[in-house]
Computed example of a mutant assay.
Amino acid sequence: MLELSNVEVVYDRVFLAIKGVSLRIGKGQMIALLGGNGAGKSTTLKAVSGLLAPERGLVTRGEIRFQGADMLALAPPARVASGLVHVLEGRRIFEHLTPEANLLAAYPLRGSRKRYQELRERVLTYFPRLGERARTKAGYLSGGEQQMLAIGRALMTEPELIMLDEPSLGLSPLLVQEIFAIIGEINREQGVGVLLVEQNAAAALEVVDHAYLLENGQVVMSGEAAVLRENPDVQEFYLGGAERVDYLNVKHYRRRKRWLA
């Protein structure tokens, strides 16, 4: 459904942020894009959704195709109309509007009132708390409720693929578990593909089918989620440690990532 081939992104015509990234997502798949700060995860999503220009970024090489169409030739609204939707890091909801108004703002102008009501009810089925807080301005919702609203607003566009940038950011472990469970439910019931960018690798690898690991703008590892969970390097650097080290008896300890050798 989505294919990136050897994509490079440059900021300010100087800084090379991602360097030849290639990845593929099939219809209905859940894929995670893992890595630390500055690895190029958010830049990859913005290259797909067309949101690089406000940050003076530019795709200088490679192809991005969604359901066979060249995305680089389309403006961001046309990409949304084709079935792509991007939930940005930090939620970015309309804080001065109610949850209901946020959902209405995302619904396409060409749609009917009946279809709007159907989609609204679907969103409230997945996120009943939004219905309970219907008259509250979105800026007064909790962080978890705002994240639910951001995902619900994305669902109002009836996407084929939803890209989520750090949905766990600033949330408690219990809320992260709840939101990831709902994302999995949406994927199974609606057949919506998910591209999930996360620093919380442990939580992401529990819900996705496949994962790509980025470092310094390059894909250094990819594979099935179950296989990556068992990889000692992934465990050591992203899952809290594969083995315990007695630092009292070791003066210098530094495990070198195998892909850097």
Rank of each mutant, 00 (worst) to 15 (best):
1 M>L: 07
6 N>C: 04
9 V>C: 00
10 V>L: 11
13 R>G: 13
19 K>W: 05
20 G>S: 07
24 R>I: 06
25 I>C: 05
30 M>V: 11
34 L>R: 09
35 G>D: 00
37 N>M: 04
41 K>W: 06
42 S>I: 01
44 T>E: 05
47 A>E: 07
47 A>S: 14
48 V>Q: 10
48 V>L: 04
53 A>I: 14
57 G>K: 04
58 L>W: 11
58 L>R: 15
60 T>W: 04
62 G>S: 00
63 E>W: 04
66 F>P: 10
67 Q>S: 15
69 A>C: 07
73 A>K: 13
74 L>P: 11
77 P>E: 01
87 V>S: 07
89 E>L: 01
91 R>C: 01
94 F>P: 00
95 E>M: 07
96 H>C: 05
96 H>R: 15
101 A>M: 12
104 L>R: 15
105 A>H: 14
107 Y>C: 03
107 Y>R: 11
113 R>N: 11
120 R>M: 08
122 R>L: 14
122 R>H: 10
126 Y>D: 06
126 Y>R: 00
127 F>A: 01
136 T>E: 15
136 T>G: 05
138 A>V: 07
139 G>H: 12
141 L>W: 08
143 G>Y: 09
149 L>M: 00
151 I>L: 02
160 E>Q: 13
161 L>Q: 06
162 I>M: 14
169 L>P: 09
170 G>A: 11
171 L>A: 04
173 P>Q: 03
173 P>T: 03
175 L>E: 12
176 V>I: 14
180 F>W: 01
184 G>P: 12
185 E>G: 02
191 G>K: 05
193 G>C: 03
197 V>G: 05
205 L>A: 08
211 A>H: 07
211 A>L: 00
216 N>M: 12
217 G>H: 01
218 Q>N: 08
223 G>W: 10
226 A>W: 02
229 R>Q: 05
232 P>Q: 02
236 E>K: 04
238 Y>W: 10
238 Y>E: 02
238 Y>V: 07
240 G>F: 05
240 G>D: 03
240 G>L: 03
242 A>C: 11
243 E>R: 14
246 D>I: 03
246 D>S: 09
248 L>C: 09
249 N>R: 15
251 K>R: 14
252 H>W: 12
254 R>H: 15
255 R>H: 14
257 K>Q: 09
259 W>H: 15
